[in-house]
Deep mutational scan, measured.
Amino acid sequence: KRPMNAFMVWSQIERRKIMEQSPDMHNAEISKRLGKRWKLLKDSDKIPFIREAERLRLKHMADYPDYK
């Protein structure tokens, strides 16, 4: 399994928030909203998620050196 990218790290947190506020919302609608919100997010606000994704990528490389 591939490591999460910055969007996936961010969306995992945000998806939980949306599901708590709107438990009846369909997953497809949540995904659309997350995509739009990520695009509107300032680059500076994305930095912590980019760093976490990089950390996960490096850990994945160390844990699975033969992964292609």
Rank of each mutant, 00 (worst) to 15 (best):
K1A: 09
K1L: 06
K1C: 08
K1Y: 11
K1S: 13
K1D: 14
K1H: 11
R2I: 13
R2V: 11
P3W: 03
P3D: 14
P3F: 09
P3L: 08
P3I: 05
M4N: 07
M4L: 11
N5H: 03
A6M: 00
A6T: 01
A6Q: 03
A6R: 02
F7L: 06
M8Q: 15
M8T: 12
W10P: 02
W10V: 03
W10Q: 00
S11Y: 06
S11F: 08
S11E: 13
S11M: 05
S11R: 03
Q12M: 13
Q12N: 13
Q12W: 02
I13E: 09
I13T: 08
I13D: 03
I13V: 09
R16T: 11
R16M: 08
R16E: 10
I18T: 02
I18R: 01
E20K: 04
E20I: 08
S22W: 14
S22Q: 11
S22F: 15
S22H: 13
P23I: 03
P23M: 01
P23V: 02
D24M: 08
D24G: 10
M25K: 08
M25A: 13
M25D: 05
M25R: 03
H26A: 15
H26F: 02
N27A: 13
A28V: 09
A28Y: 15
E29K: 02
E29D: 12
E29R: 01
I30R: 00
I30C: 07
I30M: 07
I30T: 02
I30N: 00
S31F: 08
K32H: 10
K32E: 15
R33E: 15
R33D: 15
L34G: 00
L34K: 00
G35P: 04
G35I: 15
G35F: 14
K36M: 10
K36W: 12
R37N: 15
R37Q: 11
W38H: 03
W38S: 00
K39F: 04
K39V: 06
L40P: 00
L40I: 04
L40A: 14
L41I: 05
L41D: 00
L41C: 00
L41K: 02
K42R: 08
D43K: 07
D43F: 11
S44A: 14
D45Q: 11
D45W: 06
D45K: 04
D45F: 05
K46R: 08
K46V: 01
K46N: 00
K46C: 01
I47R: 08
I47A: 14
I47M: 12
I47S: 06
P48F: 06
P48K: 04
P48E: 09
E52W: 03
E52S: 02
E52Y: 02
A53F: 01
A53E: 03
E54Q: 12
R55K: 11
L56G: 06
L56C: 05
L56E: 08
R57I: 07
L58I: 10
K59F: 06
K59R: 10
H60Q: 12
H60P: 12
H60M: 11
H60L: 09
M61A: 12
M61F: 07
M61I: 08
A62N: 13
A62W: 07
D63C: 05
Y64R: 14
Y64M: 12
Y64K: 15
D66K: 11
D66E: 15
D66V: 10
Y67T: 10
Y67W: 06
Y67G: 15
K68L: 06
